[in-house]
Simulated assay, not measured.
Amino acid sequence: MVEELDKLAFQQKVIDGGGRTLVEFFATWCPHCQAEAPVVDEVAAELEGVVPVYRVDIDRSPEVADRFAPDGVPTFALFDGGQLVERKVGEQPKEELLRMAS
């Protein structure tokens, strides 16, 4: 299960955490996000202990979503040292998410 972050946890684990992290910005009402959920779970399992994978619900943390996922959901954002280094919008194949995190 991929941990869902709120605004405070996002700041602590992604921005202040220092390492590489992959974050999916999603919405519970989004059919593309629902379709992507099993893929994200697989990616998180493969990256366990290497690169943390988190989710941010755009409706629960709109200020974070407005800043890092302004173009819609799902949005996948790779952070390194608290800085956004890559972003992809829309459903992504597992291989692409693994490539982003490597």
Rank of each mutant, 00 (worst) to 15 (best):
D66A: 08
L47D: 10
A44E: 01
V23H: 02
G82L: 11
R87S: 13
E48A: 08
E42F: 03
V85R: 13
R20A: 02
V43R: 00
D80G: 15
A69P: 02
F25C: 05
D71N: 14
F76W: 01
G19T: 10
P70K: 05
G18F: 10
A44P: 06
G90Q: 12
E24H: 11
F68M: 11
V53I: 10
V14K: 02
P70A: 15
K7Q: 15
L84T: 10
V40N: 02
A65L: 12
Q92M: 10
S61I: 00
T28N: 05
E24V: 10
D80K: 13
G19D: 09
P31E: 09
F26M: 07
V56L: 03
F10T: 11
E48W: 03
A44Y: 01
Q83C: 11
A35Q: 04
K7P: 15
P38D: 04
A9F: 04
A27N: 05
V50I: 08
Q34T: 09
I15P: 12
P93C: 12
Q34H: 05
A44V: 04
D66T: 11
L8Y: 14
G49W: 01
A65E: 11
G18N: 09
P70M: 07
V56P: 01
A9V: 03
A27V: 03
W29V: 09
G49I: 01
I15S: 12
D66E: 09
R55S: 00
Q34V: 00
K13W: 13
D66Y: 02
E48C: 06
D16N: 13
V50E: 02
C33Q: 04
K88G: 12
Q92H: 14
V56T: 08
V39P: 06
I58A: 01
P62L: 11
G17W: 12
G81A: 13
S61G: 06
C33H: 03
A44W: 01
A45N: 07
Q34C: 04
V53T: 00
A35L: 05
G49M: 02
T21V: 09
P93D: 15
F10W: 14
G19L: 09
E86W: 13
A77G: 07
V64N: 14
T75G: 10
V64A: 11
D59K: 03
E86V: 15
